[in-house]
Design a protein around this nucleic acid. Sequence first.
DNA 1: TGAAAACCGACTAATATAGTCGGTTTTTAT
DNA 2: ATAAAAACCGACTATATTAGTCGGTTTTCA
Lengths: 130, 130
Amino acid sequence: MMKISKKTQYGLRAMICIAREYGAKTPITVKSISEKEAIPFDFLEKIVSRLEKASLVKGRKGVQGGYMLSRPPAKISAKNIVSALEENDAPVNCRLCGRKSVCSSKNVWKKIENSLNSTLNSITLQSLLK
Amino acid sequence: MMKISKKTQYGLRAMICIAREYGAKTPITVKSISEKEAIPFDFLEKIVSRLEKASLVKGRKGVQGGYMLSRPPAKISAKNIVSALEENDAPVNCRLCGRKSVCSSKNVWKKIENSLNSTLNSITLQSLLK
DNA sequence: TGAAAACCGACTAATATAGTCGGTTTTTAT
DNA sequence: ATAAAAACCGACTATATTAGTCGGTTTTCA
Ligand code: FES
Ligand code: FES
């Protein structure tokens, strides 16, 4: 039911990995994350690049390059991460419902969406480091 | 993010439809539900049949046949319906994680699962009829 | 006895996810 | 200077899941 994609699972694990290095001088490489977490390198690269586009992470090219958090772990929520990686943000896209005016079930999906969001918002990377 | 399948969306709408007839002498047909709700007939038949296997609904064959609720609307939750229709009940299947012992993210998915379940459990068909 | 319904399983089509590949660009240590 | 190591990028392929279809059989009732 409502599966979380591998992309998002990998993404969260990668972010935790990067967060552990917060404060270090040198950034952490995708290669190193992929080894530590047993995530396919090429796939992970794509994932981290989306996290960068969402400004959660900052990359540095070249030798000694890698990624680092773009802000403190306390300022990054699970919701930030999930939103960066999933396109359709809601469990049900009501725009496609067609029967919106008489739709008997929309309240159910709205409640789910709300409870999901508030749960995700309440979790910070900081809180996951312990 | 975590899309609810059409199967489940249709299923909930069908259940609400059937619930509206609770107390009537004659059951409601799949054909009639499919017309009212603009859901493909053949697909809906399969869905309702799963709802029956989960004992949420009872079918009667033949002329004047159809489906009716197997218990009062107050005794059927959104969770009952969703569970009947989706195979993998949890957003993340930790059995497949492989890194369970060191998995940094499982608490996130557990929290989501819990909040989802408690939301779904709190909604009854009864409450959706108003 | 025939029509209307549920009931059933196998099939196909469409879409989404997961993963791969072959490159280009930037940076830094030597 | 240059070579290696890394990010960065887009197009591609494979696999899995979802959505929907089809051709029947069985049961019930008027
Ligand atoms: S309006 Fe959202 S599911 Fe119908
Ligand atoms: S143990 Fe559940 S995601 Fe790793």
